[in-house]
Design a protein around this nucleic acid. Structure first.
Lengths: 199, 199
DNA sequence: CGACTTCTTGACTAGGCGTTCAAGAAGTCG
DNA sequence: CGACTTCTTGAACGCCTAGTCAAGAAGTCG
């Protein structure tokens, strides 16, 4: 049983990654199926067969984006002292690598972009986005709690409030950076935020 | 000379305000001309005659939005002590009135939404957005400088860096709020930010 | 080999989009 | 009144969109 048919000619995971790049740089609405066909080298019918309609395709890309980012976040923050790592995280919100760099244009955080474009109209997008924000604050609050206990971070405010504030900072930085990034000003702001947490 | 023709039957300014509301809640791409015709009660041809094409119409709305917000900002921050006023500003980023309230759904900041949707592809949108951010930080930096001199705000970091950070916080809060607002968590984060500025 | 399953291709459909425009309505001014 | 200008109306245009589907290709397995 389960006769297997003709094998897929393209790598599904890799195609999703490339679609993610396109969706990330252009947004959901401004990326047409034709754009995807051209960029991915996969015909329309195959895309529909593999990923369902455009919306599902996009949401899948957002899921992948967050999955990668979350792994990065957990790894990076599992350290002591926390604040230098936190500073790193804050300087890399949009691109996992090069937000503050010369190459490439900052394109924000895909979760944040999705928030602006699809939320709250699209309920599934809202669920993904809400969940991502929740994970972010949970992970940060955990790290901050440990750092408070270690005396590295001030305990004048609860770690949850500090984590929520950092979510705003990251998302704000990601968004504003799309309009052009002044590295010096951004770094000064980040340092102000990080120093505000110091015990 | 200058024979005047048939007078316009609708109020241009008021129509722009109502279009602003629509663009604000749905975004640029998701608001069709037909939506505008239906909501404004003005036929397509008249809209085109009065406002040019859709893009100009939208950008005009963004300009109006910022103009109103900037006036509000300047007025609200022209006070001493500064921090209570600043806290007010931070709690009202999205709606000038009721971001943190029960009625209505937060729809973010129109400038921020524009950043996510049109920047950096659209150069005119980028100019408007960049200028708005610049005005925001200039106004805040001025107020913070005075408050530093008065000994109300810490001078461990320059007012420009503090202002840039607050821009990120406001934009981040506006954006994240679209996905649902936890009043308590948001207020706790804002208090954390404001207390971090205290001398 | 031949039956079966799945994938690929690209033409096709239907609908929505932004935009235009010609004809008529409603004013002003000489 | 009649000439002139501007605004209103809504049909029409061309384009692009997301999505479908039938025919053929490329595998697997009995």
């Amino acid at each position: 049983m389960a006769r297997t048919g003709r094998p897929r000619e393209f790598d599904k995971e890799q195609t999703l990654e490339r679609a993610l790049e396109l969706f990330w740089s252009r947004g959901y609405g401004a990326t047409s199926i034709q754009d995807l066909v051209d960029a991915l080298g996969v015909e329309r019918g195959s895309l529909y067969a593999a990923f369902g309609d455009k919306r599902r395709f996009y949401l899948e890309a957002v899921r992948l984006y967050w999955e990668v980012y979350e792994r990065h976040l957990i790894t990076a923050l599992d350290t002591s002292p926390l604040l230098p790592a936190l500073r790193e995280i804050l300087t890399h919100p949009a691109r996992l690598d090069e937000l503050i760099s010369d190459r490439g244009v900052p394109q924000g955080c895909l979760v944040g972009n999705t928030t602006a474009e699809l939320v709250p109209q699209d309920s599934e997008a809202t669920k993904i986005v809400t969940r991502s924000y929740r994970r972010f604050t949970d992970i940060l609050a955990g790290a901050l709690r440990r750092a408070q206990a270690a005396g590295e971070v001030t305990d004048t405010h609860p770690p949850e409030a500090q984590a929520q504030l950092l979510l705003y900072v990251v998302q704000g930085l990601s968004l504003v950076s799309r309009a052009g990034l002044d590295r010096t000003a951004a770094l000064a702001a980040i340092d102000t935020a990080v120093d505000g947490l110091r015990a």
